[in-house]
């Protein structure tokens, strides 16, 4: 029986143009559409495909967040995960805390693989997978765009700055997904109905016996400096002339 644990995060939807709160304390999230972090959706898809190919027997989807996080867990179940684990906590946590909480789940479930997104598109930290691998003392393959598991040999191809790197890992291991690993499936309505009956286990983060890391304090959140509105040119000749005037050619 080999399990795969997929860690997902509830984030402001990819298509939302975010706005900073006027008092600089954060981002406006009231009434904003929330979704599964797109990289975590890729992680779920990969896990489900591994189960479909007979490499895994069970896919568990886990997430940390407020009650509403169960919406995203249900979507994960509708995609094809077998059961869900919700670690409830109402305020933002640091990635190290998330890694400690997921480690507790790992110790309980003993999965063969943990798959998660390479980063969450809200805070763009790109830390949780690596931190979990470190605390678990197991291999990590970050920014994976191809995962091959055959005859007990696991190879991950990683998107690195100067091309593609392939590494071999002993299992269990942590995989973080890049964009091109797969294209997640669309969830059909009957699956959403069925997902309501799948098991969802609830934990309270504060009762898990971990110390919450509180190393960083937000001083201020600000919009980025705006670029000045540019000019339009009518053709290539005028473009070249203007670039020369600006001194960049």
């Amino acid at each position: 029986m080999s399990k795969i644990l997929v860690c997902i995060k509830r984030v402001v939807d990819y298509n939302v143009r975010i706005r900073v709160k006027p008092d600089g304390s954060g981002i406006i999230t009231d009434g904003v559409k929330m979704s599964i972090n797109p990289f975590d959706e890729i992680a779920l898809e990969e896990a489900i495909r591994l189960k479909e190919r007979g490499i895994a027997s069970e896919v568990i989807v886990a997430s940390i967040g407020p009650t509403e996080t169960q919406q995203q867990l249900r979507v994960g179940l509708a995609m094809g995960a077998d059961r869900a684990i919700h670690i409830q906590h109402d305020t933002a946590i640091e990635p190290l805390t998330a890694a400690k909480a997921f480690l507790k789940i790992v110790e309980q479930e003993a999965p063969l693989l943990v798959i998660t997104g390479k980063q969450a598109i809200d805070d763009d930290n790109a830390q949780t997978g690596q931190m979990l691998a470190a605390l678990w003392n197991r291999p990590q393959a970050c920014f994976t765009s191809k995962l091959e598991i055959t005859n007990n040999i696991t190879r991950a191809t990683r998107e690195v700055d100067d091309g593609l790197e392939t590494i071999e890992l002993d299992l269990p291991a942590v995989i973080t997904c890049d964009l091109r690993l797969n294209e997640p499936r669309y969830v059909k309505l009957p699956e959403i109905m069925k997902a309501k009956k799948k098991p969802l286990e609830l934990f309270m983060l504060n009762d898990m016996g971990i110390t919450l890391n509180q190393q960083f304090k937000t001083v201020n959140v600000a919009p980025p400096p705006a670029r000045q509105k540019g000019v339009l040119v009518k053709d290539a000749k005028e473009l070249v002339e203007l670039l020369k005037v600006k001194g960049v050619l």
Binding site: E94, P95, L96, A99, D124, N125, A126, Q127, T128, G129, Q130, M131, L132, A133, A134, L135, Q140, C142, F143, R158, E159, V160, D161, N213, Q215, F216
Partner: peptide, 23 residues
């Protein structure tokens, strides 16, 4: 904060029991 550092430093931080500032 290249793929080299992004891969490596969170692992270092977690082993040290501390968080990380990314980017």
């Amino acid at each position: 904060s290249t793929t080299f550092g992004k891969d490596l430093m969170p692992r270092v931080a977690a082993l040290l029991g501390v968080g990380q500032i990314s980017d």
